[in-house]
Every structure is written in structure tokens, then in C-alpha cells.
């Protein structure tokens, strides 16, 4: 069954991250960050060292990993794009391409974000191969959308925020013993078909840091492991396209039609 492709004129997306996790590359050293940078420096001129990220399993939990090694740990390195919309994050077991919304309000659509990810991922794979570091063995894919849901007016109660979400049983009503909530943090997991991973949806109320307005943050994270396929590249594209469709359709399912039309300009 082909999934529909709903479109929004003004989606509440604040961040998109396309991530590939792979087995640690034997022989990968600090110098390789610099060598790879020379290939992308023109478009990603600034770098920064940050702490490496932990592994998060497809079920959404952090794995606890203890490593004893004679080598000092390698950092995660940020390569910041000229436009400030884009960031590449590299560590010895992960490659992430991030896009974020800025004041210009532009969102280039998933296809463009993914194509840019693919361009630099292919460069990285090529660099690893040419450097004699062997082949990359992918262990996990991850596609993340972070939405900031900001109502047109300051909500009267937290339920106004909650009402953007569809049919949540936690919303109090007049016959309910519990009063109106003063905050929410809902986390749900939905398995993909054919053991392709899962979609983790987390909706949280709070205050935005930027202007202290009352908002809900809706995180949608798809995680999955590569399937046994002859063509790994095709498998990667297929998985990310599937994950993107699940995120978009999951967003439609979890938010109300009214919010989709009034707040984000859903187009048929």
C-alpha cells in the first residue's frame, strides 16, 4: 500500500537530522577528521569538537557501553555550513547531517535535505575507502524531525496545546477526577512493518528558550537497522524514504485536522 504524501505550506519543523550509525572504524584517528574536512571545507568552513554521542537502540533506549582502550577517545566533530542551516557531525561510529530552521523561515523539503545528506555521506564513504580504512558497516539508520508547535495566541490553558494532538486520553474533561494538566510529556513507540525499526513520538509542553513563549515540542524519531539486501545504497534510500513517509503520516495522525489547516497550511 502506498502511503499518502500530505504537504504543509508552513510546517512546524525546527530541525531535521539524517543519521547513519556504523561499526567503529578500525584505524580511524583524529587526523582523519581533518583530512575529511579538506573535502567539504568550502561548504562547511567552521569546525568544533564536542563530546561523542551515545548509542540509542531502535527501541529508543540508550545502550550502556563500557570500553577499556589504550587509545584516548575520539571526539565528535561539527562541520558547520556556511548558511548556518546545515551541520555535519562526525564521530568514529556515526555520520549525521542536520538541517535547522532559521529566521528566514525556509524549509527545503525532505528530498533536498536527504540529497544533501547523501552527497556528503557518499563523500565520506569514498574517503574511508580511499584511505585504506576498509568498508563501512552500517548498523542503524535514524531520521529525526523536531517540531515546535506554537499556537497563534497564548493558550488559555495547557489543554489548548494538548488539543493540537489527536484523541489523547490524558486530556482532562469535566467528568474526570483529574483537573486540567499543567504540563505533559507523552512518549509513544510504533513498530514499522517487516521489522524495519520503529517510530518514537514524544510530545512535551514547555517554554521556548528563544522568546519564552508557550509551546509544545514534538519529536519524531525513526530508527531502524539495515535489512539484508544486495544493494546497500538502494536499501539506505529505501529506508529513509519509508521513514520520512511514516513521520509525515504519523504527524498527520497525531495532530488534529483543524491544527493542520489553521496552523500549518495543509494542502491537499
Amino acid at each position: 500500500m502506498e502511503l499518502p504524501r500530505p504537504h504543509f505550506e508552513n510546517p512546524p519543523i525546527n530541525e531535521v537530522a539524517v543519521c547513519v550509525v556504523f561499526k567503529k572504524i578500525d584505524g580511524f584517528q583524529a587526523v582523519h577528521f581533518g583530512e575529511f574536512w579538506t573535502k567539504i571545507r568550502r561548504h562547511f568552513p567552521k569546525t568544533q569538537d564536542v563530546a561523542p554521542l551515545d548509542h540509542v537502540s531502535t527501541a529508543g533506549g540508550n545502550g550502556v557501553e563500557i570500553q577499556i582502550s589504550a587509545k584516548p577517545p575520539l571526539p565528535r566533530v561539527w562541520f558547520e555550513g556556511i548558511s548556518r542551516h546545515e551541520l555535519i557531525q562526525l564521530q568514529d561510529d556515526r555520520f549525521i547531517f542536520n538541517w535547522r530552521k532559521l529566521e528566514d523561515g525556509l524549509y527545503p523539503r525532505f528530498e533536498e535535505v536527504f540529497n544533501n545528506f547523501k552527497k556528503y555521506w557518499d563523500l565520506f564513504v569514498q574517503y574511508i575507502s580511499e584511505s585504506g580504512l576498509g568498508n563501512i558497516s552500517i548498523t542503524q539508520y535514524e531520521l529525526t524531525y523536531i517540531n515546535i508547535i506554537n499556537l497563534k495566541k497564548t493558550p488559555l490553558t495547557v489543554i489548548d496545546l494538548a488539543n493540537v494532538f489527536n484523541g489523547n486520553a490524558l486530556i482532562g474533561h469535566k467528568d474526570c477526577f483529574l483537573p486540567s494538566p499543567s504540563g505533559f510529556n507523552w512518549q509513544t513507540f510504533y513498530p514499522f512493518p517487516d521489522n524495519q525499526g520503529s517510530l518514537n513520538i514524544n510530545a512535551i509542553s514547555g517554554l521556548s528558550q528563544e522568546n519564552k513563549s508557550i509551546v509544545a515540542r514534538l519529536d519524531m524519531v525513526a530508527r531502524g537497522t539495515p535489512q539484508e539486501k544486495e544493494n546497500i545504497e538502494a536499501g539506505l534510500e529505501e529506508w529513509f524514504n519509508m521513514a520520512h513517509l511514516w513521520i509525515v503520516n504519523g504527524f498527520v495522525a497525531i495532530t488534529t485536522e483543524n491544527a493542520q489547516r489553521e496552523l500549518w497550511g495543509r494542502v491537499e
Binding site: 530541525e15 540509542v56 542536520n98 523536531i146 515546535i148 524519531v221
Partner: peptide
């Protein structure tokens, strides 16, 4: 920090 950026 699911995206590793702290952007949101």
C-alpha cells in the same frame, strides 16, 4: 539531544 545539536 537526539539530534546532537541542542538546537531546540
Amino acid at each position: 539531544d537526539i539530534t546532537g545539536t541542542g538546537w531546540t
